[in-house]
Design a protein around this nucleic acid. Sequence first.
DNA 1: TCTAGACCTCG
DNA 2: GAGGTCTAG
Length: 286
Amino acid sequence: MAPSRPGVNSIKAEDFDLNATLSCGQVFRWRIHDGRWYGLIDNAAIRIRQIGKRIEYSSSRPIEPERIRGYFNLGVDLDGILKSIDKDKHIHKAISGFRGLRIIRQEPAECLISYILSSNNNIPRINTLIERMSACFGERNEKLNGVSFHTFPTLKRLSSECEDGLKACGAGFRVPYVKETARKVSSEKGFFDRLKGLGYEAAKESLIGLKGVGDKIADCVLLFSLGKNEAFPVDVWIKRAVDEFYFKGKKSTLRDCASFGREHFGEYAGYAQEYLYCYIRSQKFQ
DNA sequence: TCTAGACCTCG
DNA sequence: GAGGTCTAG
């Protein structure tokens, strides 16, 4: 029997692919060093890797295994979900290529602000922007195995920060969006819980009412942090996939693309979106 | 309702 | 030009 290592926990993770889950673009801030993923969960720095049907993790502060399971959404019946979206040959291939990819349950405030920062921006720059904002305005600095993580700033902090401070991070024209949205959301206690209780359409309407939040970002927040699995965020990659696979190469509008996704795949369209995203990108990058 | 142009910044 | 949104017309 292997000697137990202090601080390292191991939990069962069936039907799960950690790498696919963390590299499919749904979440920011996770980094890989020496075969282990580093990131934050509940403001604790986490180091994690997968070994077969288990995941091994350690953390900068104690964190319940149940919390790890919850974050990676290991409790949901992925097999049932994938069966329900497996409606045609394209999604079928995507599923067989990336089986085990799960939709993470992100912290809503961080998810919302991060995606506001993503508009008209590219991924490397979004990442540095988020890191800079966290370094400047995050409340704590968590360290683990020599890797240091600043916690994501609270909405209160972002709303009270002067525009120049945010601008210095490189957020550009998104600064007023971040500030105004942070102010509005933090002024309503339980804003996200209220949205969780609403249906998809109503919750989406509330989000779109926020500055800097349009269709795509609203769908990302709904899917990645509020549990609305029918959300089908349409970015350039998904549009390419849908136009190519389902519209015979004809260019659709963003709106048509989104409603096609929700109608064709149904209750768990968001999972289909993630699998298609990985699939189309793997094709283009070959 | 719909479309075009502008928008900070630069791994 | 970038994983979009806002605003005007």
